[in-house]
Design a protein around this nucleic acid. Structure first.
Lengths: 228, 228
DNA sequence: TGGAGCTGTGACAAAGCTGTGACAAATGGG
DNA sequence: CCCATTTGTCACAGCTTTGTCACAGCTCCA
């Protein structure tokens, strides 16, 4: 498990590194934003502990840059009381904020919580909504008592996103961001993917029961109870 | 998007509920652990804001119980300085800790960060004025106890603008700027759109109850109380 | 009183959205 | 490397939404 620690206060950075190594992490240290971005690129850490106040390229810029390209969990460090900074950073994509001074124990616990969360979001999830049963690991779905159907990578990803947000409308933009990530995509790609997914799970894709179209907005998964 | 707020401090609980409702959440309140567990079971909230110090069944017990059975994101509230509690709660499965006192903005940003990591889409706006209920995400409106009506993109946009400014006259120019933006538009377009919206929400569009005309100026939404 | 302006309405053309088909390009596995 | 599968791209059809124009009725003012 690799951590990148970024803080221009070398004493604090070393202390954090020591704490994390004690917890079993491999730690890389950066004392400014440029080094941080380089190490992030070269090393692909599992979590980043990122101080807000860095010389030149500050913590916000680093967070923005990383978040534009990856999902790496980011925990930001800030001085007590800077509410605006906390809100701004969280909205920008940070996962947590720890206010200096803090105890090493709390930092570790927060890192573990963030990793737990991030791991949960990625790992094989078995989801059930109404009579849809999805095994994300195997990329298999069963509708009620029908046979198991194998989905492609993107189909499974989309269905999972629908199921996590059952009952809510997912805009085309949100679907694109979730399924295709930073490279993005367009409406035509969404349309094709929805069509392919409907073909696999709907009893009649021309009259869908599960995946509803919301014209001009996107799509929504309906919670259909088990068919009798 | 549903939130469950648990705090024996009723004033604070109500304040949090108000804040979250303003962000578009549907909020359920519990003032003790037993009610919290019941509501969690019955209501399946998307996120739980859980105070540590509750009478009888405390926040830890509630967290432990929920975490044993579900992945629902849990944000715990604690009094400043209780490092042991924070670490203990995070290790037990809480997703985040917010220390009292805190700003509503920060709480919301932390909730959004946790939901984001869980793959949950952004909350969409719901609005209520009198007996008009608008779900902007689905582009659906319900008038009192009548059936849900689907609006077009522009109709929903206009109705939302009316509802946010209920009781105020919106000039044609303001409506044009809001609905059509930089490309602009003309009075005829406003007229048509108002007509179409009236057709969908007014019991009798020829004698409108909700959308009043202010000749030479624009239109205004009237706050009509629920019909008996 | 007549003309101008405003508002509501009807009707139709233009624009937009969605689903579908087909094929090329990209990807992954043996 | 080859082949099968998946994904992306483009074209088209059908339906819905929006814009535009014409007209009628009402109000106000010179």
């Amino acid at each position: 498990m690799k951590a990148l620690v970024v803080d221009d206060d070398r004493v604090l950075a070393d202390l954090i590194a020591f704490t994390l190594r004690h917890e079993g992490f491999q730690v890389q240290l950066a004392y400014n934003g440029e080094s941080a971005l380089r190490l992030w690129q070269d090393d692909a850490p599992d979590v980043i502990v990122l101080d807000l106040n860095l010389p030149k390229l500050d913590g916000f810029a680093v967070c923005r840059h990383i978040r534009a390209e990856a999902d790496t969990p980011i925990i930001m460090l800030t001085v007590r009381g800077e509410d605006d900074d906390i809100v701004r950073g969280l909205e920008m994509g940070a996962d947590d904020y720890v206010t200096k001074p803090f105890s090493p124990r709390q930092l570790v616990a927060r890192i573990q919580a963030v990793l737990r969360r991030a791991g949960k979001a990625q790992v094989t999830a078995v989801a059930q909504v109404g009579d849809l049963f999805l095994d994300s690991g195997r990329r298999e779905v069963r509708v009620g008592q029908s046979v198991v159907v194998t989905l492609t990578r993107l189909e499974a990803k989309l269905l999972h996103y629908f199921m996590v947000n059952v009952g809510h409308v997912l805009t085309n933009e949100a679907i694109i961001a979730y399924v295709w990530g930073p490279e993005g995509g367009d409406r035509d790609m969404v349309r094709q993917l929805v069509r392919r997914l409907r073909r696999k799970i709907e009893p009649d894709a021309a009259n869908p029961l599960y995946i509803e179209t919301v014209s001009g907005v996107g799509y929504s998964l309906v919670d259909r109870q088990p068919m009798q």
